[in-house]
Design a protein around this nucleic acid. Structure first.
Length: 634
RNA sequence: GGUCGCGUAGCUCAGCUGGAUAGAGCAUCUGCCUUCUAAGCAGACGGUCCUAGGUUCGAAUCCUAGCGCGAUCACCA
């Protein structure tokens, strides 16, 4: 039990007795003592002053005396204003250290009954992975490990968006402009090659859209009457609007209308229908191109060091979604419009009407998500919930999805959680911050970044020169570990829910609050332990006093289990990251200020070795939770 | 326009379930390698916690309004 909890229970008991009345547990508020004051833990006495019927300082003194008298590990106290600072004895901390030393899986929580699925990555198969996917993957992978450390059984998964109109776009463009280009004959990585044709489609679409708009402008309409009417309505509205913003909104709508009226767009839609009908020509092309993509993705995942227990493909689950729509239609959860499209009315939930099946009978995004969720529940009986690692731009979508699942009557929908993380912004040469834009060529490619980061790690490590005697293979492994560790840490140390600004220089930085800084602490301790000889925790209790840095370190170690729990509850690797950084910093302070091996007092020397060993143990454990490896030497 | 989110040092971020004089890193400047790995340590400089009200013993933290930024409101995913 933590000191905080222990003290709260004891104090509650003592105070109830002392003041002869029942005391609300919420009035007992312990917090860490601020550095500027003497003490380890502080009781906030303001809430208790009323009960004592004395001023806060008097109350503090009164309670402080009581606690010192009754609790043996409280050595002394001081009251500053309404804050009662308690000094815990060194013996107590030494016992704690000894305890930590005996636990192998320190910080890891006992098994629970919960079985959770964590979904992350979930890319579209029409473009290569980029920086945003890196944040997604590292986050999901780390959260999976954190949940495991909290005792839950975890299944790591992803849903591969391998079908849909966007895939058909790449396919169509390849058919038209590809001239039989393949990864083999071009040497281009599979996912990159398919991405290339997705871009080609976009260009073609843009050109055709302009043609359509030009025709419309001259009054030539070879489209359905409704489209023409809609265009005329919008054009009129655009001329009436005064402010530029709403004008732009209408112009965007016109553009979209034109977009959808292009021949190429019609062809793509047709292709999707053919695909759903499994027409061999289309289906084979689809299989071929997706095969290229998977080959490319697998290389990227391997380089990133993330993996999955089970893969789902939308092409397998969207039919299940369609069945759910059918059933829901019968049960009056959904309703059908004249054009045969199927909708759900969520206006009573504060949301809108939402399409669940297109008029032509093909599935949309949410259709397949419904099917996927149900499939998962069938595949893993007893699954308690699903964690969806998906960007916060999809907050609305998941809101809708969970509501739909609830309305369909699935109890487990309540345990689905959208791990909604912030977008990554980039800073351009002018210092402006903004999103990655493929059109402006600012998308940071995942493969390129990983390669770059490892290369930088190599250069910087060679400069430092701590690696003589390593084989080439060991060296390469180390560069990989440092580069990737730095990148992962950089992306994970920020609160996942917040958007962040990517700075390429900081992502490869070795100094300060970085992954390599922490890895370095681990390597230092490893080096220390290598030259320490034999030691044990037996004589720790004989140490006659702890210096500040030592005590700080023990206190920090004691916090770890709570940190793991907190990180699990909040789904936040950042909590782990910030904690290990603090721990590492504290250790460096010890390292720089005292010598471990040259300490003459034997008990003290052993205590410091045990302390160091356990700092390393916790660093390794915490870094594992972030998906980062630590080196014995660097 | 509706909904949701964000606004803390020059920059990137902690702190936000209310507690003491708001913390780190980067950048700038000082010191410290004959000593277990200086990828380090010690220190200096740097703040209208967006603004205005409110709640209370106490507000960066909670509430309301305003300003600014972003996301979303697709028969895209």
């Amino acid at each position: 039990m933590s000191l905080d909890n222990k003290l709260t229970i004891k104090t509650l008991e003592l105070l109830s007795d002392f003041y002869e009345q029942a005391i609300d547990a919420n009035l007992i508020q312990f917090q860490k003592t601020r550095k500027d004051f003497e003490g380890d833990i502080t009781l906030v006495v303001f809430p208790l002053a009323k009960i004592a019927k004395k001023s806060p300082p008097q109350t503090g003194d009164e309670i402080g005396q009581l606690l010192v008298d009754k609790i043996d590990y409280i050595g002394s106290f001081n009251t500053v204003q309404g804050f009662l600072n308690l000094v815990i004895t060194d013996q107590y901390w030494l016992e704690e250290l000894k305890e930590i030393e005996t636990v192998d899986n320190y910080g890891i929580q006992p098994r629970t009954e919960q079985k959770l699925m964590v979904e992350y990555s979930s890319p579209n198969t029409n473009k290569p992975l980029h920086l945003g996917h890196l944040r997604n993957n590292f986050l999901g992978h780390s959260v999976a490990r954190i949940l495991e450390a909290n005792g839950h059984e975890v299944i790591k998964t992803q849903i591969i968006n391998d079908r849909g109109i966007h895939i058909c776009k790449s396919m169509l463009a390849w058919q038209r402009f590809g001239n039989g280009e393949t990864p083999e004959n071009s040497g281009i990585k599979g996912d990159k090659l398919v991405g290339k044709y997705y871009v080609k489609f976009d260009q073609a679409l843009k050109e055709e859209t302009e043609v359509v708009l030009a025709k419309w402008g001259q009054g030539e309409f070879d489209v359905e009457n409704e489209v023409m009417a809609e265009y005329q309505r919008l054009s009129l509205a655009a001329t009436e609007k005064e402010d530029a913003k709403s004008r732009k909104g209408i112009l965007d709508k016109i553009k979209k209308l034109a977009n959808n009226s292009t021949p190429i767009m019609k062809d793509v839609k047709e292709m999707l229908v053919k695909w759903e009908a499994k027409e061999p020509e289309v289906y084979e092309l689809w299989e071929k191109m997706n095969g290229w993509v998977y080959e490319g993705f697998n290389k990227t995942y391997e380089a990133m060091g993330v993996h999955f227990d089970k893969l789902y493909y939308e092409s397998d689950t969207y039919l299940k979604g369609k069945k759910l729509v059918e059933q829901g239609l019968k049960d009056n959860v959904f309703f059908q419009k004249e054009d045969q499209s199927v909708w759900i009315d969520l206006t009573d939930e504060g949301l809108d009407e939402k399409l669940v099946l297109r008029g032509d009978g093909t599935a949309v995004y949410v259709t397949q998500d419904m099917g996927t969720a149900q499939q998962r529940m069938e595949d893993f009986p007893g699954l308690s919930g699903i964690v969806y690692t998906v960007g916060n731009e999809q907050d609305y979508h998941f809101n809708v999805l969970f509501k739909i699942l609830q309305k369909l009557g699935y109890k487990w929908a309540e345990n689905c959680f959208h791990l909604s993380y912030g977008m990554i912004d980039l800073r351009n040469d002018k210092g402006e911050v903004g999103k990655m834009k493929s059109r402006e060529g600012t998308v940071v490619d995942a493969d390129d970044l990983v390669k770059e980061v490892v290369k930088m790690a190599q250069e910087m490590t060679e400069e430092r020169g701590h690696i003589e005697g390593m084989t080439e293979e060991e060296k390469n492994k180390l560069y990989q570990m440092i580069g990737l560790g730095g990148l992962k840490y950089y992306l994970l140390k920020v609160d996942p829910t917040k958007r962040m600004t990517f700075n390429p220089d900081e992502s490869v930085e070795l100094n300060g609050n970085t992954g390599p800084f922490i890895q370095y602490v681990y390597a230092r301790i490893s080096s220390l332990l290598r030259s320490a000889g034999n030691f044990s925790a037996q004589n720790i209790a004989e140490v006659d006093g702890l210096i500040d840095v030592e005590k700080e370190l023990v206190k920090k170690l004691v916090e770890y289990p709570q940190i793991v729990i907190q990180a699990g509850e909040d789904h936040s690797p950042a909590i782990i990251a910030n904690y290990i950084y603090d721990l590492g910093k504290n250790f460096n302070s010890l390292w720089q200020n005292v010598s471990v091996l040259k300490e003459e007092n034997q008990a003290k020397r052993e205590m410091r070795l045990i302390l160091s060993k356990n700092v390393a143990k916790v660093i390794k454990s915490g870094m594992y939770l972030l998906g980062i490896d630590v080196p014995e030497r660097m």
